[in-house]
Simulated scan of single mutants.
Amino acid sequence: MPTPNDSPQIFSPTKQYVKTNVINNVIPVFHPTHTTTVNKHFNTYIPHTRSIMKECYSQRFVCGVPQPPSYSRRMLRY
């Protein structure tokens, strides 16, 4: 029988913990592989050339009289 000086007992619920251990196993597995690289080069030969001509004309007047036309011609090649 409890005496008047005794306190009642206090009970807490049990705390649950989970501890997980991870163990890694290395298992060598051999799967042979091979890679082939193919480089394709295409050479295109064009048997045709092209030229562009640019013509520029000027007209001169000296004292109101037209002078013979002068022109310059430049040939550009691509």
Rank of each mutant, 00 (worst) to 15 (best):
I10C: 02
H48N: 12
E55F: 11
H34C: 15
R60D: 14
T37Y: 01
L76W: 05
H41K: 11
V62K: 13
N43K: 13
K40C: 06
P32N: 02
P68D: 14
F42P: 02
F11R: 03
I52T: 09
P69S: 04
I27N: 02
T49E: 10
M75E: 15
I23P: 02
Y45K: 11
T20I: 10
T35F: 04
K40G: 03
F30M: 13
Y71I: 01
P32K: 01
I27T: 15
S72H: 05
Q59N: 12
P8Y: 05
S51E: 11
V38M: 03
Y17A: 06
Q16N: 08
T44Y: 07
P28C: 07
N24L: 09
P66W: 00
P8L: 04
K54L: 09
H48F: 09
P47H: 09
L76T: 08
V38N: 07
M1V: 06
P47Q: 02
Y45R: 12
K54C: 05
S12D: 04
C56H: 11
R74V: 15
Q9F: 07
T33L: 03
E55A: 03
K15L: 13
Y17C: 05
H41Q: 11
T20F: 02
M75D: 13
I52P: 02
S7Q: 13
H48Q: 10
T44L: 15
Q16R: 09
Y57F: 14
P4E: 13
V38W: 04
P28L: 04
Y78C: 12
T14D: 06
F30S: 15
Y71R: 06
N25G: 04
S58V: 09
Q9S: 06
R74H: 12
F61G: 00
T3D: 12
T44M: 07
K40W: 08
R60E: 14
P8N: 11
V65R: 05
V29I: 15
T37R: 01
V65L: 11
P28F: 00
H31M: 12
R60Y: 14
Y17N: 05
V22E: 04
N43T: 14
P47Y: 01
P8W: 03
T49N: 02
I46A: 04
Q16A: 06
Q9G: 12
I27Y: 00
V26N: 08
Y57P: 00
K40I: 15
P66G: 03
N5W: 09
Y71L: 09
P68R: 04
P8Q: 05
V22Y: 10
N5L: 07
N21Y: 15
V62D: 03
P28M: 01
Y45N: 12
D6K: 06
N5V: 09
S7C: 06
S58E: 08
V26S: 11
T36H: 08
P47I: 00
S70A: 07
V38P: 02
S51N: 08
H48Y: 11
E55L: 13
Y71G: 10
C63K: 14
P32L: 05
H48T: 15
P2R: 11
T20H: 00
S12M: 00
P66Y: 01
H31P: 01
Y78E: 12
N25E: 09
Q67I: 01
H31Q: 15
M1I: 10
D6F: 08
F30E: 13
Y78R: 13
F42N: 14
V62I: 11
F61A: 05
K15W: 00
R77W: 08
Y17K: 07
T14G: 03
D6E: 14
S51V: 04
